[in-house]
Every structure is written in structure tokens, then in C-alpha cells.
């Protein structure tokens, strides 16, 4: 473990953690740790990219404030959506396995399905400010 990394996810108040910090996250096999490389905004939520390439959604990181920072479907531009669709098709055609959890294909596909659902499954719920 990186001895200079600050341990977060145990009650830290600074969010998100900085690059190089050790983060703790929930996985199918219990809690795991990794070194944060960067934080990327996905189509709905933020993904934490670890130095070893694993991609962890923000809401699985210990210490993540609730509710986490999420984008609305309206915030996504056509260019961004098309770029995400292009990457997904390319990864699928390249034979990557989306069931390989914590890898970018799983992360991108999960977000794309969530985004698509939110984009088209619009209920009658409107902002109180809406005319």
C-alpha cells in the first residue's frame, strides 16, 4: 500500500478524494482497496478509476456522501452520447466481457443502460418551477 496515501472512506470529510489516495470500496467479495488515479464523469454518475485500471462507481466507495453527484439526462450532449455509444459498440465487437466487473466495459454499459432508462422513461414528475 502506498505509505503516503491518505486513508479515506473511514469518515473523511473531504470529497472526492485526491489522486493517489487509497480508497475503500464495496465489492461482491467484501471490502477492497485501491489507489485512486482519477475521477471521471460518466453519463449518470462519477466513476473512480484506480491505478490498476479498475473502474469503481462513486456510490460504491466508502465515505461517498448521499445522494452522490449525479447528472441528469438533459446534461448530456448529443456528442457525448454518441461517443459513449460508439465506445460501447467497439468494446462489444472487440469481444470484451461486460460481466468482468470493475472493468471499463461493465462500467460504461451499466451507465449507458441507466442513462437510457432515465432519458426515455420520463414520468410526469416536473420541477415545481416548471410552467
Amino acid at each position: 500500500m502506498n505509505s503516503t496515501a491518505k486513508q479515506v472512506g473511514t469518515g473523511a470529510t473531504i470529497w472526492p478524494p485526491e489522486e493517489g489516495e487509497t480508497i475503500t470500496f464495496k465489492s461482491d467479495s467484501g471490502l477492497k482497496v485501491g489507489i485512486l488515479k482519477e475521477v471521471k464523469c460518466g453519463l449518470v454518475w462519477r466513476d473512480f478509476i484506480l491505478e490498476d485500471g479498475r473502474v469503481i462507481p462513486e456510490h460504491r466507495i466508502l465515505g461517498c456522501p448521499e445522494p452522490p453527484v449525479w447528472r441528469t439526462a438533459d446534461e448530456i450532449s448529443q456528442d457525448e452520447r454518441e461517443a459513449a455509444e460508439g465506445r460501447l459498440v467497439m468494446m462489444a465487437e472487440a469481444g470484451l466481457d461486460p460481466r468482468d466487473r470493475e472493468q471499463s466495459f461493465w462500467a460504461e454499459l451499466n451507465q449507458y443502460l441507466a442513462y437510457t432508462y432515465l432519458r426515455f422513461n420520463r414520468t410526469e414528475h416536473k420541477s415545481p418551477d416548471a410552467a
Binding site: 449518470v44 445522494p67 454499459l109 443502460l113 437510457t116 432508462y117 432515465l118 414528475h125
Partner: peptide, 30 residues
């Protein structure tokens, strides 16, 4: 509300074998 909606649709942390089903659900919405 959005969190609840996605949780109920099983779209927050898709489990290993659920992708075909979730893709179908998204397709139906589209």
C-alpha cells in the same frame, strides 16, 4: 427519486448475469 427509480429497475449495480435482461428493459423503454 432518480436513485430509487434506478434501484427498482435494477440498473445501479447490474449483477453479472443480468445484462441481457437489463438491455431488454432499456430497449423496451426506448
Amino acid at each position: 427519486r432518480v436513485w430509487k427509480m434506478l434501484s427498482e429497475a435494477g440498473l445501479i449495480d447490474i449483477t453479472l448475469d443480468d445484462f441481457p435482461e437489463r438491455i431488454k428493459a432499456a430497449k423496451n423503454v426506448v
